[in-house]
Simulated scan of single mutants.
Amino acid sequence: MVRELDINRLRVLVEVAHAKSIAEAARNLAFTPSALSQQISKLETELGARLLERRPSGVTLTQVGTVLAEHGERVLGELREARAAVDAAMGVQPQRLSLGSFATAAQVLVPAALAALQRRHPRAELSLVDMEPPEGYGLVTSGDLDMLITHRYPGVGPTPHPGLVRQPLLDDPLRLVLPADHRLAGGAGRRSISLSRLGKETWISGAPGIPNRTCLDTLARKTGIAPHVAYESADYHVTLALVGAGMGIALVPASMLTTADRSRISVHSLRGPAPAREISIVHRRRPTALVQELTAFLHTAADAISHDSPPEQL
């Protein structure tokens, strides 16, 4: 029985788990793919168990590999946190921060917050990684990311995040977006539309399994309709362009509509309790000073978006 695991080999396994590819993990660690594979093989020999399933499309973790990688993330995160705590005790201020964020937040929340942080710490090395939910939690656990901006749509289950703090940032209401010449777009003072009136419409949404599609399907089941999704896109800019061209209707977060061209679309709320995606910040239990400052700036940016909502969206 192995009494002690090699931390470097554990780091290799965690990197492979995150990259889902031997070749990409090797590039990230400045190894050759063969050298990295040898490290995994040695770890498997020491444990007496297979850790990876190699497939043409990449690698997946076995059950044993998943368990070890999850523990490895926590171990690496604790080591990085220990170093940060020692630096803080010595009066050394953190000079690096890596943020993961999904596309919408990276567009409407992150720029102002990162710019404010950079002004306060001009020598700090700040970085941003595109990270679509539910990805990113393991990277925060291992310390590869200092913090994560993520979301959760109605109907989507929570992502377990042991050892991490999830802090609400913004409730982003979902709005019904119609072509400007749609039969339901007119009407003086009409601000809300019942989903039950949209059963025969053509919809634009993400593919099955994408959070916004799961949300649409969940709301539709509650209403008793079966939406016909003819156009699938996870990109809201594409969705809005298709709606503006008259190709269908969509549910779009209000934050994506703050800069949208209103000349070709009509924006409405859904009748009844307003569905919203929850936008949150995720970080470790003992955040660095930079993480705490960026969190404050992100809350300021989120408040600005909430206050800038046009009256017709309320």
Rank of each mutant, 00 (worst) to 15 (best):
K222T: 14
I204E: 04
I210M: 03
R191H: 08
A220G: 07
S255G: 04
L170R: 12
S269W: 01
R277Y: 04
I281G: 00
T239K: 08
R213D: 05
K222M: 15
S263H: 09
E293K: 15
P275V: 01
L270N: 12
L176R: 00
R277N: 10
L290V: 10
L174K: 12
L216T: 03
I281W: 00
R213I: 12
G206K: 05
A260K: 09
L290N: 04
S269E: 14
L298F: 15
R285F: 07
L174S: 09
A180C: 03
D261R: 14
T214I: 09
P253W: 01
D235S: 10
P168Y: 06
A188Y: 00
P275G: 03
T300P: 02
A220V: 05
D235Q: 06
S309L: 11
Y231C: 07
G186T: 02
L174D: 13
V252D: 01
E201L: 07
S255Q: 05
L219Y: 02
A304C: 07
Q292N: 03
W203I: 04
L178W: 04
W203P: 01
L251M: 15
P211A: 13
A260H: 14
D303T: 12
L240G: 02
G187M: 13
V252H: 03
S266E: 08
A230Y: 10
P168Q: 14
V243Y: 02
G272M: 04
D172E: 10
R262V: 09
P310Y: 06
W203Y: 15
L290Y: 13
T223N: 08
R213H: 13
G189V: 08
R277S: 09
F297Y: 15
Y231I: 13
V282E: 01
P311M: 06
A301F: 06
V177W: 00
P208I: 15
D303Y: 08
T202W: 13
A241P: 06
L176W: 04
D261P: 10
I225W: 01
L174H: 14
A220S: 15
L298K: 07
I225M: 07
